[in-house]
């Protein structure tokens, strides 16, 4: 019974913890760099370098455009949308969370969950709470047991 309880508690704990962790994602410091990181520099499709990382003139120009658009009060979503309309979804550094691309986002966590289940199943096979009695009363009591026990108590400290 205790075992079942422990199992339940640990499962709930792990589930709760993982939901909590799933919900936090690092928001970058500024909207500016957030947008720059979400777009590939149109001149560097071959290396799929983001606007933020790219140093050439096209990237500089786009950075400036983003800055102006932000100053005009456009939101992150709006700005990204203008670029997607212009260049297609290929300009995004991350696949949008819809359609087949959803696979990209879901699979890692599915994998971890499956791994977790596997570990859980393996543990429930491996965990055997042994009966306490078995190992005792094997040795016959000898006259010198006390002496040896004292010696063990003394000697193990040398190995500490």
């Amino acid at each position: 019974m205790v075992r079942g309880l422990v199992r339940k508690i640990s499962l709930t704990w792990i589930l709760l913890g993982s939901f909590l962790l799933l919900n936090i994602s690092p928001a970058l410091a500024s909207t500016q760099s957030d947008i720059e990181n979400s777009l590939i520099c149109p001149a560097c499709f071959a290396e799929s370098m983001s606007v933020a990382a790219c140093q050439d003139s096209t990237a500089q120009q786009i950075k400036e455009e983003i800055r102006q658009k932000l100053a005009l009060g456009q939101t992150k979503v709006e700005i990204i949308k203008t670029y997607v309309d212009q260049y297609g979804e290929g300009i995004l550094t991350s696949p949008p969370k819809k359609g087949f691309n959803l696979m990209a986002w879901v699979t890692p966590f599915l994998g971890i969950m499956m791994g977790g289940t596997l570990i859980y199943l393996a543990l429930s096979r491996w965990v055997k709470v042994p009966s306490v009695k078995k190992s005792q009363a094997k040795t016959k009591p000898g006259a010198l047991d006390d002496y040896y026990e004292a010696r063990v108590e003394e000697e193990f400290k040398k190995y500490l």
């Binding site: 306490v132 190992s135 005792q136 094997k138 040795t139 000898g142 006259a143 010198l144 047991d145 002496y147 040896y148 026990e149 010696r151 063990v152 000697e155 193990f156």
Partner: peptide
Amino acid sequence: QELKALHKEKAVRLLKDHDKVSGVTERDLV
């Protein structure tokens, strides 16, 4: 307690066996 008893028993057996091999008898020890 369980682990300690288990390993102490092993340690005692090991010491005893060694003493036997190296010719220390119980009488000597006593």
